[in-house]
Computed example of a mutant assay.
Amino acid sequence: MDMSNRLRGLSAMVTGGAKGIGAAIARRLAAEGVRVAIFDRNPNIAELLARECGNGASVAAVDLTDFARLRSLIAEQGPFDIVVNNAGVDQHAFFTETTEDDWRRLLSINLETVFAVTHATLPHMQASGFGRIVNIGSEAGRLGSRGGSVYSAAKGGLIAFTKSIAMENARYGITANTIVPGPIDTPLLRRAVEEGGEKLLKAMENATLARRLGTPEEVAATVAFIASREAGYITGETLGVSGGMGVAAG
């Protein structure tokens, strides 16, 4: 297959696409000829990114937990051939320090929004005979996380959900895969390092075989391949972009 055509002409939505990993994914897909819709609650930042991406990139300003508005915007800006569920939120606290409101917020943003997006976008993919669902998880969903039990549970649920969607939709030419990043050098991670100090940064690096942080662009490159036409034989998989973190932990 001509590499220049592996994504060209397709349409994609990226949730949480204004900053960090999501922004890198939007840039990479747009650079490969995809029309990208950035779904994010920060419209000003998203608009700047959309102008940078070009190729008809658009913005949907939405709180993803407002499922009625989310469905309306998907109908308005779609249909989409590719869905990248990237939006997520973490909280560092031991489980006994969390509240029921924390549980609801973490599960809603990290898992239920993926249900809503997938439910709204699958019918078009099924009708067209092509679709790529790429869910951004975390190694915490496979390995657990000290101080991140609810987040880990949500990401673990995301992995199981993705496998189930892959099973149900393979006959329609739809693939569903989870990408699980390890420690990625984003502004959010850097803020955590500022609070935790150099010792925290070293611990993150040493948790990987690569002994370094990953970059958003490395995650985006993996998304671009998994979302492409040439990746039709890869589905139901959980792909670590974590410098060997899973192996190091084992």
Rank of each mutant, 00 (worst) to 15 (best):
T208N: 01
L7W: 06
G157P: 03
G129W: 09
R146F: 15
L107A: 04
D63E: 15
S58V: 12
L48Q: 09
S72P: 01
G232A: 05
R71E: 00
G147P: 04
F130R: 03
G33E: 03
E76N: 09
N169A: 02
N206F: 07
A68T: 15
L239Y: 03
H119I: 02
A26L: 12
A153Y: 06
G214S: 04
S138P: 10
R105E: 08
T65H: 02
G54Y: 07
M3Q: 05
G156T: 02
R190A: 06
R142S: 15
A176T: 11
A75M: 06
L158I: 00
T222D: 08
I25S: 10
R190L: 08
D90T: 06
A87E: 05
L64N: 08
G16A: 03
L64T: 04
A170D: 05
L106T: 02
E198C: 00
L73V: 13
S4D: 08
C53F: 02
V34F: 10
G196R: 11
F225Q: 04
F39E: 01
L7R: 02
G182H: 12
N85K: 03
Y233M: 05
V83E: 10
A26M: 12
A23M: 08
T235S: 15
A154G: 00
T175W: 08
R142N: 14
N5A: 12
D81Y: 10
G131K: 07
Y151E: 07
G22T: 13
I38Q: 00
N169T: 07
K202G: 00
P123Q: 15
V180T: 14
T65R: 13
G232R: 02
R132W: 07
P183W: 06
A12N: 11
G182Q: 09
R51V: 06
G131P: 10
F95K: 07
I159A: 15
D63I: 10
I234A: 05
N135V: 00
I174Y: 04
V180M: 11
E139P: 01
F95R: 04
Q126L: 02
E100A: 15
A93N: 12
L7Q: 11
P181A: 10
E237G: 01
F94G: 11
L239A: 06
E139K: 03
M167L: 14
A46G: 00
T238Y: 05
A18T: 03
R8W: 03
